[in-house]
Design a protein around this nucleic acid. Structure first.
Length: 726
DNA sequence: CTTAGGG
DNA sequence: CCCTAAG
């Protein structure tokens, strides 16, 4: 609309803008106007505005839970800029993840003010109930509003001991963004990224998003018992869980660990906070550390976040939706090993999808927040980008190995889902609990006609390949990689409670060749209608195995468009238009599921992030190549004819406003290539042939606007005053 | 953030 | 497409 307003140039010929760009540009005009208005605005006005906003927020909050189809917009998470749609976030966090999330949110606040507000609002939704529930224990801890790192410092908070202190959690979902972002810009600032909430928490294993990150929480354990009493002791009151939901919650996969399995059973009832602490790992004396894992089983308790009985209803609804989604995704169950892996893949895909959706909706600016992905970016860190192996899913041997390194406890073998909390006990031992480790994503490429069995095998192979090289544990403290292995925990400061939030663990490939790991982005691949499968297998992702799967039903039928590429791309920053559409739609349908992850992404991550991404990673391609279709070219040409070159933003708004994956830079680049293409002989042209007619127009327009530009410059040079007048 | 260009 | 310098 903007573009249209401004341009009256009918296309009878090209018209030269009469005013300097600043003046012409609606955007700028608006900005100017706004600034003027703002200046006029008095303090009172501002206050009024703020107050109104507050009220609005409050009002909105309640709505969410009740309304089956909440609008994400309300949350206002996304602050958006024009182009970006509202980010759909879900307010409800019935899952385990929610716990983390919430906790994280509190932290997030500190980290990002922006995200903060919205988060708060959302949290409050559930939060209210949550608070109540937990109030007994310690409302503060869970209260998003109050959550702060400081809380961590007060072990007392948990009535019992350690629970709440989950400080850090990174989310997986973010990882794409983060990675990308980080890579791109080596921002030193640590941003917290939260990954998605585990959907699985809702009880759907497949959906767990949690797999992703490493959640580390360090709690100071005042209590001598190594066992932690989960806050949930009194669980009955607060947590109610749907039995259904419960199952999946187990974040950690304890492949084969009986204890763990037991954990599941116990969890539902006991754990107040699920997801938060799934497993308690008691560090032994080993300096090295993790070796000792305590048993998770009976003692393990998870915090289930949030929901109170009142919310049950919501949860159920979620669950059903979730299931539905799961079904669609074809993720049905988590079974064992292979199956699990398999599921993981699917879930990942799903997650990716979600992530993608979320990202798509998230304004670019906001996305930056994610930059600091928890673990991902760092050098040599394993990039888990999309793929996380959920806790529940046992990774097979290979995986187990990796986990084994971390913990000696066999039960803990799952890569993901470690919660590690550190507790400092009387003997000055540091206890850490690792919630989860991210596993590098795997790409698998397989013919559509392949059997499920073959896919399973492919996944297995990918995993095996990944692990074959061996993994090592990396540690990140305060955003820096801990390289000096000889230092004591005391020396590094890890022994301090407050260091917990800054502590992260990563699994890194042993060999220098971590390329696959690094590269792998997302396991989800849904070919889009317009996306040739061939694109999928691009070098951009040197994953071990490149997956090409056609997953239908993942999206609405009509929208099955999601393509692998899209997903990947989305992670970085843009989402394909088709997808976005789908995404929104989907979100609407099942806000909860989708939304939640996003939220996590945005604000939660507290994990330390590597500040300087590796070169190798940086060099990785972030977006998938998406050739312009003839239709797109035509739209571009048309827009440029009218708007001219040099106004790419306007061109974008005018002709590609709905194509989120086409940035103005893309358009500019495309124009550049079009001009080049038009100048070379048809024989030299590659790719989808562009009608000569269009190319001719390209040349014409290009010539026209180039001259126009020159004229303008000339005028400026010789008659600056004239220009000013204009 | 946008542009403009080089890679 | 990516990356960046400039504005």
């Amino acid at each position: 609309m903007v573009a249209q307003n401004r341009i009256n140039y009918g296309f009878n010929g090209y018209q030269v803008p009469k005013k300097p760009r600043a003046a012409r540009s609606p955007r700028k005009r608006d900005t100017l106007q706004r600034s003027v208005e703002n200046d006029r605005m008095c303090a009172i006005d501002l206050l009024a505005t703020v107050a109104a906003g507050t009220l609005l927020q409050e009002k909105q909050n309640p709505i969410i839970p009740s309304d089956g189809s909440p609008k994400k917009d309300q949350h206002g998470f996304v602050k958006e800029e024009d182009e970006d749609a509202n980010t759909p976030f879900k307010a409800e966090l019935p899952n385990e993840a929610s716990c983390d999330k919430r906790l994280q949110h509190g932290f997030v606040k500190e980290a990002c003010a922006d995200a903060n507000k919205p988060l708060k609002a959302e949290l409050s939704d559930d939060g209210s109930s949550e608070k109540k529930c937990f109030s007994t224990l310690s409302s503060q801890v869970y209260d998003p509003n109050f959550c702060s790192k400081e809380n961590l410092h007060h072990p007392e908070i948990d009535g019992q001991s350690c629970i709440a202190s989950i400080v850090t959690s990174s989310s997986c979902s973010e990882r794409f963004v983060t990675d990308n972002m980080v890579d791109r810009k080596s921002h030193s600032e640590m941003k917290n990224i939260t990954s998605k909430v585990e959907l699985g928490s809702s009880g759907y294993p497949d959906c767990n998003d949690c797999n992703l990150d490493v959640h580390v929480s360090i709690v100071k354990d005042e209590v001598q018992n190594s066992e932690k009493v989960p806050i949930g002791t009194s669980v009955g009151m607060c947590c109610f869980e749907d039995p259904v939901d419960e199952k999946p919650q187990v974040p950690v996969n304890l492949g084969g660990n009986a204890k763990l399995s037991g954990y599941e059973d116990s969890t539902p009832h006991n754990s107040l906070f699920k997801g938060c602490d799934n497993v308690t790992v008691v560090g032994r004396d080993d300096d090295e550390n993790f070796s000792g894992c305590s048993h998770p089983s009976s003692k393990t308790k998870t915090f289930r976040s949030k929901t109170c009985i009142g919310d049950q209803r919501i949860r159920k609804r979620l669950a059903s939706k979730y299931r539905k989604v799961a079904r669609e995704s074809k993720h049905d169950t988590l079974s064992n090993n292979v199956d699990r892996n398999f599921n993981t893949v699917y879930s990942n895909r799903k997650n990716s999808y979600k992530r993608q959706l979320s990202q798509m909706n998230i304004p670019f600016k906001k996305r930056k927040i994610f930059d600091c992905s928890s673990t991902s970016n760092s050098n040599g860190y394993i990039r888990n980008d999309n793929t996380y192996y959920s806790t529940k899913n046992d990774m097979n041997q290979g995986v187990s190995c990796s986990s084994a390194r971390i913990r000696k406890d066999p039960g803990m073998s799952s890569l993901e889902g470690y919660h590690r909390s550190a507790l400092r006990s009387r003997d000055s031992h540091v206890k850490l609990r690792i919630k989860s480790f991210r596993v590098p994503e795997l790409f698998i490429e397989i013919p559509e006609t392949a059997t499920v069995a073959s896919l399973k095998i492919a996944v297995m192979e990918a995993v095996t390949t990944l692990l074959r090289g061996g993994l090592r544990v990396g540690m990140i403290l305060n955003g820096k990689k801990l390289r000096d292995d000889s230092k004591t925990l005391l020396q590094t400061g890890i022994s301090h409670d407050n260091a917990l939030d800054a502590l992260g663990f990563t699994l890194e490939p042993n060999s220098s060749q971590s390329l696959p790991l690094t590269c792998a982005k997302d396991s989800l691949h849904v070919p889009s209608a317009d996306m040739p499968l061939s694109l999928i297998g691009q070098p951009s992702s040197p994953a071990v195995v490149r997956p090409i799967q056609r997953i239908q039903g993942f999206c609405d039928t009509e929208h099955q468009v999601t393509s692998l590429s899209n997903i990947v791309e989305s992670e970085h920053d843009s989402a394909p238009s088709p997808i976005s559409t789908i995404g929104e739609k989907r979100l609407t349908d099942s806000k909860e599921l989708v939304t939640i992850p996003e939220m996590d992404t945005e604000g939660l991550a507290v994990l330390p992030v590597e500040q300087k991404p590796k070169r190798t990673e940086m060099s990785q391609r972030r977006r998938i190549r998406r050739p312009f279709s003839v239709a797109e070219v035509e739209a571009l040409v048309e827009a440029v004819e009218r708007l001219g070159t040099g106004r790419w933003r306007d061109v974008k708004l005018r002709a590609f406003d709905d194509a989120k994956h086409r940035t103005y830079v893309d358009l500019k680049d495309k124009w550049k290539t079009l001009v080049h293409t038009a100048r070379i002989s048809p024989q030299q042209r590659r790719g989808e042939p562009v009608p000569q007619e269009l190319l001719d127009r390209v040349l014409t327009a290009h010539a026209y606007w180039s001259q126009q530009q020159q004229t303008k410059q000339h005028q400026l040079k010789h008659h600056p005053e004239t220009c000013l007048l204009l």
